[in-house]
Computed example of a mutant assay.
Amino acid sequence: MTNMKKENLIVLVGPTAVGKTDMSIELAQSFNGEIISGDSMQVYRGMDIGTAKVSKEEQRGIPHHLIDIKEPTEPFSVQEFQQRATKLIEEIGSRKKRPFLVGGTGLYVSSVIYDYQFSEVEEDNTYRQELEVFAKKYGNVALHEQLNEVDPKSYEQIHPNNVRRVIRALEIYHITGEPFGERGQQPPISPYNVSLIGLTMEREKLYERIDLRVDIMMEQGLLNEAERLYEAGVRNCQSVQAIGYKELYEYLDGKVTLEEAVTTLKQNSRRYAKRQLTWFRNKMDITWFDVTQEKDKMLQEIHQFVEGKLL
C-alpha cells in the first residue's frame, strides 16, 4: 500500500501587529500562493479597521479567502472555519498553487493543522439559562472564575467577555464531566506537510507597535466603524466582542470617556498578544523569526526554511 503524498501547507502565525500581512503577501508572491485568513474576526463584513483587514490594494493580486464571508450578526465557529479552510486547501492545491494559512487565532489555525475532531455535545438549555442569569447578576468575571474551577485550560484560553464560549465550556463540563479544554486533544501529527513560520519581536517593542497601531486605527475611523455597527443594532453578537469594538461600545453606552476606551483598547490588545504568544509556544512546533532583524536576511532565512520543508 503506497502512502498518499501530503498536501503542502505554509502557515504563518504571530501576535497582533507583528507584521503578518505584509510578510504573507511577499511569501505568497514568491511561492505562487493563495492566502487563507486564520483570523476569527476578519470574516465579518464592515469590520475592516478594527480587524486590520487587508485591503484590495494591499493584497497585490494575491487571492485571499475567508474574509468578508459573514454579516456581523451571524455566528462563526471554529468547526465552520476548519471545514471551510480544509476545503480551500484542497482547492488551492488542485490549481497547482500553494495554500498559505495566515493569522493570529491560535485555536482556528491549530484546528486545521492538526485536524481536530470536534465531538458533538448536546445542549442543556435550562443550565445555559441559569448561567446567563448568573452572568447578568454577578458579571462576566465571576462566571469566568467558575470555569477556572472545572476547566483551567479553557479558563486561560477564553476571554471573560466571551460569555457565549464561557457558557458553552461550562455546559460541556456539566453534560460530560470532562473539561472542554481536555476534549479532542490530538497528538501533534498533521495531515499536511506543514511549514510552520512564527513572526516575533522583543515584547516591549511589540507593545509599542500595538499602541501605535491603535492610534492609527482611531485616525483611520475606527470610532465611525464602531458607531455604524452600534447604530445598526449589532449588540450581544460574537462579532462585537472583538477587541476594538467592545471597548468603543462602552464609550457609546456612555460608561467611559473616549480616552478611557482607547486606553483600555490598547491594554486589551497587549494582553491579547501575550495570550497569542503563549498559545503558539505551548500548542505548536513553530520555527520563529525575529522581524526586527534586517528584512532581506529574514526573508532569505524563511525561504530556506520553507524550501527545505517543501523538498
Rank of each mutant, 00 (worst) to 15 (best):
N3E: 15
N3W: 01
M4S: 11
M4K: 11
K5T: 14
K5W: 02
I10T: 14
I10S: 02
V11N: 03
V11E: 03
L12G: 02
L12F: 00
G14I: 08
P15H: 05
V18K: 13
V18T: 10
I25M: 06
E26G: 06
E26K: 11
A28I: 11
S30R: 08
F31K: 06
N32A: 10
G33C: 02
I35A: 08
I36Q: 03
M41T: 14
Q42K: 14
V43Q: 05
Y44F: 15
Y44W: 11
G46I: 06
T51V: 15
T51D: 01
V54S: 14
S55W: 11
K56W: 05
E58I: 02
R60W: 04
G61P: 05
I62F: 03
H65F: 11
H65L: 02
I67E: 07
I69D: 03
P72R: 04
T73P: 00
P75L: 09
F76W: 12
S77V: 01
F81R: 00
R84V: 03
K87W: 11
E90Y: 06
E90R: 14
G93E: 15
R98A: 01
F100S: 01
V102C: 15
T105V: 12
L107S: 13
Y108T: 15
V109T: 04
S111T: 07
I113G: 02
D115T: 12
S119V: 10
V121N: 12
E123H: 15
T126I: 13
Q129S: 08
Q129R: 11
L131R: 02
L131K: 05
K136S: 12
V141N: 06
V141F: 11
E149H: 07
E156T: 11
Q157L: 14
Q157P: 00
N162E: 09
R164D: 10
I167L: 06
I167E: 07
R168Q: 15
E171I: 02
I172V: 12
T176S: 12
G177A: 10
P179R: 09
G181Y: 07
E182M: 14
E182P: 00
R183A: 09
G184D: 13
Q185W: 04
P187G: 07
P187E: 13
S190T: 02
P191I: 04
Y192P: 02
V194P: 01
S195H: 01
L196P: 04
T200V: 07
E202Y: 12
R203N: 14
E204C: 07
E204T: 15
L212K: 10
R213G: 00
D215R: 09
M217A: 08
Q220A: 15
G221P: 12
L223G: 03
N224L: 09
E225C: 13
G233M: 14
G233F: 12
N236Y: 15
C237V: 05
S239R: 04
S239K: 08
V240A: 06
V240F: 09
Q241I: 10
A242H: 02
I243P: 01
G244R: 05
Y245A: 00
Y245Q: 09
K246T: 12
E247G: 08
L248P: 05
Y249T: 06
G254Y: 08
V256K: 12
T257G: 08
L258D: 11
E260K: 10
T264G: 10
T264W: 13
Q267M: 11
A273I: 07
L277E: 10
N282H: 13
D285W: 00
D290N: 13
V291T: 12
T292H: 08
E294D: 15
K297E: 11
M298K: 06
Q304V: 01
V306A: 03
E307H: 05
E307Y: 02
E307V: 00
